[in-house]
C-alpha cells in the first residue's frame, strides 16, 4: 500500500517535471535545471550523511573539483561533453579516495573537522591558483555541440540542456536508490545506527565508510561537472563553504536518509535563496539562521513531517 503510493507519486512527479521543461517560463526552467543539478549533489550527500551517518562539512570540494575537471578538460583538450563529464568524475573520485582515506580514520566530530579543513584549504588553493582556475572570477568556456546520429546535443539550447540534466538526474537517482537498498546500502545503515555493533558483527567498517565516501564524492563531482558544462563556467565559489553548508541545510530541511527529501529540500530552498539573494547581498546570514533552526528545532526534516501528517490524516479517515 505504502509502496504503491510512493511509486505513483514518483511517476507523477517525473511527468510533471518533464512537462515543466516545455511550458515553464525561461526563468523557472533555468531554476529547475539548477535544482536538478543540485539535486544530484544533494542525493550524493544524503548517501554519505543520511545513510552512512557521516556528516561531511566540505562536500562542495568534490562538486567544485568535478566542475573544474570537466571545464578544464574541455578548454585544454577539446574533448566532447561526455568525455568531459567522465574526466570530471575521475578526478573527483581520485580526490575523494585520497581525502576519504585520511578523514575516515577519525570518528564523530573529528571527521567533520577534517572534511572542513580539507575543503577550505582546497577552496583557498583554487582562489590562489588563478592561472589554473581563474580564481574568484572563474573561467568561462565554449561548449561545442555533440552530434549523436542526427540529433545535435547543444547545451546552449535551454530545452536540450533541461532534458539532458533531467535524464542524468534520473539515472543518478536510480543508481543511488539501488545502492541504498543493496546489501552494501544496508551495511551503511548499520554503521549509521551503531558503528561498534556493525564492527562486532564482522563488517569491515573502515572499508564501507570509504566506499560510501567515494561513491558520494563520485556523484558530487558528476553534479559539479554537469553544472559547469550546463552553464559554461566554473569558479572557486563552487567549492566554497557556502555550498557545503547549503547542501547540509537542503538535506536536513528535506529529511536526511530519505533520498527524495533532500531533492525536495533543494528545490524549495534553492528557490527561496534565489529570491533572497535578489533582495540582499548578505544572504549568508539567512543561511546561518536556517542552519541553527534546522539543527535545533527541525530535526526530522520536511519529508518526515509530511509523512507524519499524512499518516495522521490516514488514521483519522480510517477510524
Amino acid at each position: 500500500m505504502r509502496w504503491k503510493r510512493r511509486q505513483i507519486a514518483g511517476i507523477l512527479a517525473i511527468i510533471l517535471i518533464g512537462i515543466a521543461g516545455i511550458i515553464a517560463p525561461p526563468y523557472i526552467r533555468y531554476l529547475l535545471t539548477q535544482i536538478l543539478i543540485f539535486g544530484i549533489f544533494a542525493i550524493a550527500f544524503d548517501l554519505l550523511f543520511g545513510y552512512t551517518g557521516l556528516l561531511s562539512l566540505g562536500h562542495a570540494m568534490f562538486f567544485g573539483i568535478g566542475a573544474y575537471g570537466a571545464a578544464l578538460s574541455m578548454i585544454h583538450f577539446h574533448v566532447n561533453i561526455f568525455v568531459a563529464i567522465l574526466i570530471g568524475i575521475v578526478i573527483g573520485t581520485l580526490f575523494s579516495v585520497g581525502i576519504g582515506a585520511v578523514c575516515i580514520r577519525m570518528r564523530d566530530v573529528f571527521f567533520l573537522i577534517l572534511t572542513f579543513i580539507f575543503s577550505l584549504i582546497i577552496y583557498l588553493v583554487s582562489l590562489d591558483f588563478v592561472w589554473l582556475t581563474g580564481g574568484d572570477d572563474g573561467i568561462n568556456f565554449e561548449r561545442p555541440e555533440l552530434k549523436i546520429l542526427t540529433f545535435k546535443l547543444s547545451l546552449y539550447d535551454e530545452y536540450v540542456r533541461y532534458y539532458f540534466v533531467l535524464i542524468i538526474f534520473l539515472i543518478s537517482y536510480l543508481i543511488i536508490y539501488k545502492i541504498s537498498n543493496s546489501p552494501t546500502g544496508l551495511a551503511f545503515k548499520a554503521i549509521r545506527e551503531n558503528e561498534d555493533l556493525a564492527k562486532a558483527l564482522g563488517y569491515d567498517v573502515s572499508l564501507l565508510k570509504l566506499k560510501s565516501f567515494v561513491l558520494s564524492g563520485l556523484f558530487a563531482s558528476l553534479a559539479g561537472a554537469i553544472y559547469s558544462l550546463s552553464f559554461g563556467y566554473a569558479n572557486a565559489e563552487l567549492m566554497s563553504l557556502d555550498i557545503s553548508l547549503r547542501v547540509i541545510v537542503w538535506t536536513l530541511f528535506g529529511g536526511a536518509g530519505t533520498l527524495i527529501g533532500p531533492v525536495i529540500g533543494t528545490g524549495i530552498l534553492t528557490y527561496v535563496f534565489d529570491v533572497i539573494s535578489s533582495i540582499t547581498r548578505n544572504h549568508p546570514i539567512i543561511l546561518g539562521i536556517l542552519l541553527i533552526a534546522v539543527m535545533v528545532k527541525f530535526k526530522g526534516g520536511l519529508y518526515n513531517l509530511a509523512d507524519h501528517l499524512y499518516n495522521l490524516t490516514l488514521e483519522r479517515v480510517s477510524r
Partner: peptide, 24 residues
Amino acid sequence: RPIEDNPIITLIVTLGLMLIIQQS
C-alpha cells in the same frame, strides 16, 4: 546551553553563528 555535550550539533550551530557574525 541546550545543545552542549553534543559536539556535532554544536559545530553546525556555531557554523551558523559564524556566518551571522561574519556578515554582520
